[in-house]
Design a protein around this nucleic acid. Sequence first.
DNA 1: AACTGTGAAAACTTTCACAGCA
DNA 2: TGCTGTGAAAGTTTTCACAGTT
Lengths: 275, 275
Amino acid sequence: MTEQHEAPGGVSGRALQKDIPQATVARLATYLRVLAMLADDGVLIVSSEELAVAAGVNSAKLRKDLSFLGPNGVRGVGYDVVKLRTRIEDVLGLSGGHRVVLVGAGNLGRALVGYGGFKRRGFSVVGIFDSDPAVIGRTVAGHSVRDAAALHEAIIALDPTIAVITVPDEAAQDVCDRLVAAGVQSILSFAPSVLIAPPTVEIRRVDLAVEMQMLSFERTRNAEPEPLAEVAHAVSGRIARHVPTPHSSAAHPALKHSASHSATEPSSKGSAVTP
Amino acid sequence: MTEQHEAPGGVSGRALQKDIPQATVARLATYLRVLAMLADDGVLIVSSEELAVAAGVNSAKLRKDLSFLGPNGVRGVGYDVVKLRTRIEDVLGLSGGHRVVLVGAGNLGRALVGYGGFKRRGFSVVGIFDSDPAVIGRTVAGHSVRDAAALHEAIIALDPTIAVITVPDEAAQDVCDRLVAAGVQSILSFAPSVLIAPPTVEIRRVDLAVEMQMLSFERTRNAEPEPLAEVAHAVSGRIARHVPTPHSSAAHPALKHSASHSATEPSSKGSAVTP
DNA sequence: AACTGTGAAAACTTTCACAGCA
DNA sequence: TGCTGTGAAAGTTTTCACAGTT
């Protein structure tokens, strides 16, 4: 690890988001959510261990992640919740806020704009588009849905920092082309197809079925320990196998996910894109 | 790499999904989608290069991924589309189909059940629950929404292989506890919080805001090459920078996404949803 | 000639374990 | 004493490049 983030002199504000590992960036978003929650609860200081448990990672990883942002904590004490939160927002480029345009006002599009954490995290929707006449003109989350035919001019006027595509797969590439032609540089797509665009445009793709398939794989793998034996108790899962202790939600050390989350976290694997 | 997948004798059907890298599993889902598309188009044989381009990865990675499933292609020729598709479905444990229960019939939940690729990929919804009296009894995607209060008995009767949680964050842990108590072993959650459950239960979490934050980071990083210079042309992106060639969607060598994973991929992550 | 399958190298990530500071 | 920050080791994933097949 190269330590460019040492900030030797009095380097101001944020800087050097260079060489922060991709995997770390994916997790920073999660830490941010936990920090926001803690701040709401009035918590002032948090230790790496506490933060790590809440984020579902181990504390060494969390400390390593944070170390890429420069020194953030106080040894023997912990991290200042507000300060750390601000620092992460700064590094992720969230401080200035983002102007988001949504193309596709179907269920998924509406689910996204309605998602509370959205606005709270600095993303404000500035325009919603659709090509369905039955939807155009309707109000969604305070915005009148506009005709996607007028995308070009509208995009230029709205000047969004991010565009989100939630249209059917067949229409996705066309929408993408038009967004790019209008100057959009960052696109998040929920269409299954891999979209093609110039390399200067950053596209991330989220495929909601991938996670289901990974669950399927995991279950299948765990269910087949003995490839040879006929498996004695072929009970067809009608009876609840485990009646888990209704744990007290807190103080639970269960850190099982090792991240591969996709759209989740380790997602270094999960979903995604980027060369 | 241990070669357990050599299948020396005449090992039947699928087997040895042991030690298939997590990152590979995440991408298999994507390959599957492309293969399904090719099959629909009547394509019989595909080369690693073609498949790789369509999936947004490079061909060496694709070949390595497939090699974990055993020999699937024919040298000098390519892969048999149907055979490869079947093999991947088999390895992912999709062949037997999955019984999916959805808890939370809001926009996101409806977007998920309405997603065509869902049923097509072997996931069939067997029950939808919600706790909102205004929603209970309504029909969503052919299913009458049931009262989440009766979750326990219903789950035992439905015996789902996967449960999907799309309720508000505050309710997620409670729903999770009840699902686990009823014997559910695989859960996909869209709630931001990290859910706590016994280690035998596989939980995957998808945070839709993470991807947006990663886009934000990438844009910020690219926008700050010169930390010192005042940046000459401070044009506020009003003019379209690139007018992309309206490419012919095929024969496009653009391989930019390398899927971290991911989850992240990253995320990275495989299919999608539509309005 | 075309294309797969795969060792070996390179790159990236996670985990360990401890030095260092409040 | 308690907790952060971090080199170094271990583990995972990607890329290279070529041997092997049809």
